[in-house]
Design a protein around this nucleic acid. Structure first.
Lengths: 240, 240
DNA sequence: CTGAATTGTGTACTTTGTACATTATATATC
DNA sequence: GATATATAATGTACAAAGTACACAATTCAG
């Protein structure tokens, strides 16, 4: 308890220079849904310690850059996308997590439409890897991926963000399949339909699937306006 | 797009020294429930820029210290508590958030039993402030507090963490009241009871409230073991 | 003994979730 | 153009959970 009165950054003017010795990075966990499979965008590491292993897309934070802006920049530079779902997940601060020194990293979760991305993709070293097939990763990136996936599983049940993984117009089958892929469960098709329709968040765009070799389904779009209306009535209820 | 092939911390061995120029801190949002009111533990800032304003309890991250460990240390040093609910909330990284330079901070949410705390409290500059009465705060601490409160509201509905704010033995009235304080809603007393009993998480300790000037209620404790049993059955359902 | 405050209990009703089967429509193949 | 294949679209019965609501019982204070 002798440290109780120790000078403190929040309360006392102290000489801070010796404390400015950390590096910060952002790492983006970029999820995409492609050919019925949940994938994440990875890059091969060239660092000696992790030669050939897969790592997340990240970069060092710049001295005059907001943390959130850094994650956005990484997304923009690497994928060319400028408008995507992007949200901070967590900061990983184990002492020896990076071989170059004390580098802490803040993980960001991004949801992109793979179809959009493919149009602008330029970098060959990047690869969409099915989440279920990923084994070892560089650094603590496996931990970061697992953490982000858990956050994603929670969030898609609480907010209608899953539509960011699909094209503007989608079939109910696709929508159900993304949910099932991410949550690792199966829903009854008829009850899923009923549930989604009663949310009032789907707009029937009066178009049908094309080029499927079976009866085509209707296409829907996510009704953002309807969601803005209802989301104020915050859900309150215990569910543990 | 010219930056696509820029050397990158995850993929390329680069000289990192010039990048190690950030300071990191942790700030703890310590919630307590006292006399029917949700409070947060604050300290007056002595920094010239924020003289006399309230700030969260925080400290700089040390060079060889895990981020999570730093938050735990702050709690221990300031309150004497060594065993409390403590969880990372978010990292705040606006460029000018600290007058001393580029200091990013990671916020941690702590839930403590005020009764436990009072036994060990030594530091006078600390004060429990009712959350509803807090106005301006130093730095971006108001934003951090608001963010943490929102996270708290979500989490108490998803996990039985609220018991960390109460004593080991508590009445159903107390339990309901903490929920209502944090969520800002009122529950029907009878339905709340029914709901809590059906969770199977309450153990009747066969004791009654003491020194209340009305019919005393039974006391219960949180059944951690029962929770471990049921929490594996992860809830899956859409609720937006 | 009475009033004040709060506990403890139960029922009817509404809403939501779950299980489950049949007909309809498009494409591919023969 | 008939048939097989695949999936769309729909509805009902039942179970579970949530909501609204009223009354008797217990303790304390005066």
């Amino acid at each position: 308890m002798e440290e109780l009165v120790r000078p403190n950054i929040n309360t006392t003017p102290v000489e801070l220079m010796p404390d400015f010795q950390f590096a910060l990075s952002v790492d983006c966990v970029i999820f995409g849904y492609d050919e019925g499979v949940l994938k994440v965008l990875l890059i091969e590491s060239d660092l000696p310690a992790y030669k050939g292993q897969w790592s997340l897309l990240g970069d060092l934070l710049r001295p005059d850059e907001d943390l959130d802006e850094a994650s956005y920049r990484v997304l923009r530079e690497r994928t060319g996308l400028t408008d995507m779902f992007l949200e901070q997940v967590k900061t990983f601060g184990a002492v020896n997590r990076h071989p170059a020194g004390r580098v802490l990293t803040t993980a960001y979760l991004a949801l992109v439409n793979v179809k959009d991305y493919q149009l602008k993709k330029k970098e060959n070293a990047l690869q969409w890897k099915p989440v279920s097939e990923i084994q070892a990763m560089a650094f603590d990136h496996r931990l970061i991926l697992d953490t982000s996936l858990t956050v994603l599983q929670r969030k898609i049940q609480e907010e209608p963000i899953i539509f960011n993984l699909l094209e503007k117009k989608f079939s109910l089958r696709d929508l159900q399949h993304v949910f099932e892929q991410i949550l690792g469960v199966e829903f009854d098709r008829r009850n899923f339909r009923k549930k989604l329709f009663t949310t009032g968040l789907l707009t029937d765009v009066n178009e049908m699937e094309q080029q499927v070799r079976h009866r085509p389904g209707r296409l829907y779009s996510f009704n953002q306006k309807a969601y803005e209306q209802i989301k104020r009535k915050t859900f309150v209820g215990l569910q543990f």
